[in-house]
Design a binder for these strands. Structure first.
Lengths: 101, 101
DNA sequence: TTATTATATCAATATAGATTGATATATAAT
DNA sequence: ATTATATATCAATCTATATTGATATAATAA
């Protein structure tokens, strides 16, 4: 323990329960735009990258990040992949943020 | 405009009004911990870096980032600098996030 | 079968920002 | 005046991740 002007506090760090990871993921502009877009309903990849004005592979990358964390899900329809938001997971983190602040 | 399977949408990107920047700033664990700590009330730098278990200069750096964005303010007291949260600004962004989701 | 379309993946590069170490500045104490 | 304390700043390095270009895969159409 460091001795300085201040009283020494024990185990003061809040357990953030992954909320920082959520924040990191949605703090990327394209991903935030994707989540916002999916509020309207499910979209295929080409709708998403076109709406955002970004390259197809870049959209795929960001979709993977969002999906790996569980914020969105996907289903197959012919040769398209349709993505949609998982409101339950998203709401969980939004509630955590509101409690934190 | 790209021709693909999807209808072409006009100007679909949401104006995020700086919320991504806010999210980027609070998505850093140490900064989130600082904001959480400052819920208790104002703290000097040494209390903050000790509570977080990080180096003094690193704490100073993160405090600067938070302050430059307007989430915290500071005042001088002897040789100490006391930091405190600006709830008004923080709440503004939290409300934006809630509207966005 | 061949060509086209939609998406994903991979490797390389670019970039932002976190961390560290050293030092500067300002205040207070001796 | 010298020393100690509290904080900030600067330069260097490290690390994570966004972006790009090329290619792979899978489904459909011709």
């Amino acid at each position: 323990m460091i001795k300085n002007c201040c009283s020494v506090v024990k185990s003061p760090k809040k357990n953030l329960t992954g909320v920082e990871k959520f924040l990191k993921i949605i703090s990327e502009e394209n991903r935030l735009q994707i989540l916002y877009l999916l509020r309207e309903g499910e979209k295929c990849v080409c709708e998403i990258y076109e709406a955002l004005g970004i390259a197809q592979n870049l959209a795929s990358h960001h979709l993977k990040v969002l999906k790996d964390f569980g914020l969105i899900k996907s289903r197959k329809e012919g040769r398209k992949i349709i993505y949609f938001a998982d409101r339950k997971v998203i709401n969980k983190y939004i509630n955590l943020i509101n409690k934190l602040f």
